[in-house]
Design a binder for these strands. Structure first.
Lengths: 193, 193
DNA sequence: CCACTCATGTAAACAGTTACATGATTCT
DNA sequence: AGAATCATGTAACTGTTTACATGAGTGG
């Protein structure tokens, strides 16, 4: 259900077509919420049907049109409702921890290899998060820039702080994963030694 | 698919009935992988059909029987295969971060309330993780105790270290969440001030 | 005999993944 | 002319959640 709110959140910045949204979801939004095209387009249609969005047909090329989605008052009200409703704690379901608990069942070399892969992944992820955080602070981030255009300086500052706060959480998580992976290398030495 | 491996992982400790497993999944295993009864029983049947488990009918009371599941060699081999196969990085999909990025859309009092709830949840969760970690270190944890009975002291020590390592990761994550929530309280002061 | 635990599921709905499908437009 | 991008999906499948269903055994 959160996909719905992630879509509204994005569209409060500026109206977008399904394609624009889909591109955002494969870049910056993906840090907070991932979804493939095949989930986005049908959900946009359902949201329009439910009155949370309206769409404007925009000519594209000679014959084609594209649909630009706008958040309705109803959509914004529902978004606020969700924002203020209690957050249900996520159930733990991360294969990395499950595997770690049983590292003694696997070949230490294979474990080391997996740790290396995870390390590369999280290092790249962390770098991306830090780049995005910087683009929020200096307000060069395109979606943020579009959003804060409509706001006064005080409101803009608060909007930026919230986004930076979210990224700080993600960055802390990434660092914590990397520290844990580092400890994993020490553990695997014991397993093979 | 990881449910399957979580089930085998648990059953490598000792043979269990569906009910035992289901109880484990609502207590200690839930720290690493959550699943409800309605997912566990059908999966056990599929795993038996696929030759990963065998079951022994055990009389229960006067008329009834219960099924005790044992991991087969095939099951153990497949588990090792999974353990040594690359770990696909989890896509980010945590409503807490999505909400945080848009805190400026919500009433600060509502945000503060949610932060408090999250704080209570993570504090309790952390306490439970630390209790479980302690029971692994002193080897009083029932599933672990059953598992290490079959092992020599060196192997037992390694098995314990792996489980402790997994819990250390979960504990670090919980602490990181709590620190982030703490920062959230500071942020919400700015939003309402 | 009543409540609780033990025991095992089914059914429907929802969320998410993977693979496939198609055609127009713009850039080189 | 061909490649890349813009644009929008459908279909089949897997995984997860929620609600419901049922009955035997055990302890007070």
């Amino acid at each position: 259900m959160s996909l719905r709110w992630a879509l509204i959140a994005l569209l409060t910045g500026r109206p977008m077509t399904g394609y624009d949204i889909s591109k955002s979801f494969s870049t910056s939004v993906a840090h907070v919420w991932h979804a493939p095209d095949s989930q986005i387009y049908p959900e946009l249609n359902r949201m329009e049907r439910d009155g949370l969005l309206t769409s404007v047909e925009i000519p594209w090329g000679k014959k084609g049109t594209k649909k630009e989605y706008h958040v309705t008052d109803e959509g914004l009200a529902r978004f606020r409702e969700w924002m203020e409703s209690p957050l249900v704690p996520q159930r733990q379901r991360d294969p990395a921890y499950l595997k770690a608990a049983y590292f003694d069942f696997a070949d230490p070399a294979a474990v080391r290899e997996q740790l290396r892969e995870q390390q590369v992944y999280w290092e790249q992820h962390l770098e991306m998060l830090e780049r995005t955080r910087a683009s929020l602070v200096d307000r060069s981030h395109p979606t943020l820039a579009a959003r804060i255009e409509k706001l006064d300086e005080h409101e803009a500052e608060l909007a930026v702080r919230c986004k930076v706060y979210a990224y700080d959480g993600l960055i802390a998580r990434a660092r914590s994963e990397l520290a844990w992976i580092e400890d994993g290398f020490a553990l695997v030495e014991e397993l093979s030694g």
